[in-house]
């Protein structure tokens, strides 16, 4: 393996590993793409670098100039990816972070020098988005990358993650990933369907709307602008909710198979298992699942070690996607 000039050069080109030993069907091969191998520890490193480089190209940011400030709402991973990129490139970062994320997410932001602006946990990511938009309007000199509306987000996956999946597994029949900002699903989904229109794209989401009780009415709801402008609804073939308990059960099952991955990976695996168990008579599938991050940031939740009922109940009040 080559020696790399910059830690940012380590972003992308992640490995895939076969976890068919835990597949519920012998006719479904399941592979997990390990995005936790990125230097900031998650798939969002790709998005962070892509958005910052696009802003530099557009002249919104000038490399080497001092005093430039970026602002971003994030439940954790995008903020952490941006904190890494900003630390290396010399930009100052402010992250609007809901209070109910794991302590490790806060610690990673702090260690790379990001300033944390808290948003109410009861409003979930919606609250972080709301406050960030207000701050961006009040401080037009700050660069607001806004992952939910930034086309450099899905572009990172269209140009990076998608081609890697196709390179390493051209026999893919189903692609499963968490919904989040929708960037992964739009970018990879579009690339794979261009290569093979028969590839099925499945989105998995936590029942966030159940736990976000800070919503006053449905007009406070939120759909990422990139999902609407880039035709996300037409790209998805299925969208399924996976609850905390099932997410943790699958996270543990993956640990039994030797993989130490985050709770959202457990949710995505549950989606893949559902896909595998619905295969028709004689039908075969090759399912590629994105593991957004590794398990390190969730050790404090007790996800692997404590009583599953206790952990599942606790997971209802934290953001793990």
């Amino acid at each position: 393996m080559a020696a790399f000039a910059s830690v940012l050069d380590l972003i992308g080109d992640t490995p895939m590993v076969d976890v068919s030993s835990v597949s519920p069907s012998p006719r479904a091969r399941i592979l997990v793409k390990l995005e936790g191998r990125n230097p900031g520890g998650s798939v969002k490193d790709r998005v962070a670098l892509s958005m910052v480089e696009a802003a530099e190209k557009d002249g919104l940011l000038t490399p080497g100039k001092s005093g430039q400030v970026l602002l971003e709402p994030s439940s954790g991973n995008t903020g952490i990816g941006l904190a890494l990129v900003c630390r290396v490139k010399g930009y100052k970062l402010k992250v609007v972070l809901p209070t109910n994320v794991s302590i490790e997410r806060r610690q990673l932001l702090e260690l790379w020098g990001a300033e944390i602006i808290e948003s109410p946990g009861s409003e979930g990511s919606n609250g972080a988005v709301r406050i960030a938009r207000e701050l961006a309007a009040a401080n037009p000199e700050w660069v607001f990358l806004y992952q939910y509306a930034n086309e450099a987000n899905p572009k990172a996956h269209y140009e990076g993650t998608g081609p890697e999946v196709w390179r390493d597994c051209p026999e893919v029949t189903h692609f499963v990933a968490g919904l989040g900002t929708t960037g992964t699903l739009i970018g990879v989904g579009r690339f794979l369907k261009e290569k093979n229109p028969d590839v099925q794209v499945w989105a998995v989401e936590p029942p966030a709307g159940e736990t976000v009780d800070g919503l006053r009415n449905l007009d406070d709801g939120y759909i990422p602008p990139i999902f609407e402008t880039l035709g996300g609804a037409a790209l998805l073939d299925r969208k399924t909710v996976v609850r905390p308990r099932e997410s943790i059960e699958w996270t543990r099952r993956l640990a039994d198979a030797g993989l130490f991955v985050g709770i959202s990976t457990g949710a995505a695996m549950a989606g893949a298992a559902k896909c595998a168990s619905e295969l028709g008579e004689g039908e075969e599938a090759v399912i590629v699942v994105v593991s957004a991050d590794d398990g390190w940031k969730y050790l404090s939740t007790g996800a692997w070690t404590e009583d599953i009922d206790v952990v599942a109940e606790r997971a209802k009040s934290i953001i793990y996607f």
Partner: peptide, 10 residues
Amino acid sequence: VSILPAVAGG
């Protein structure tokens, strides 16, 4: 059947 508001993730 579950009814849920669309909320932001990520």
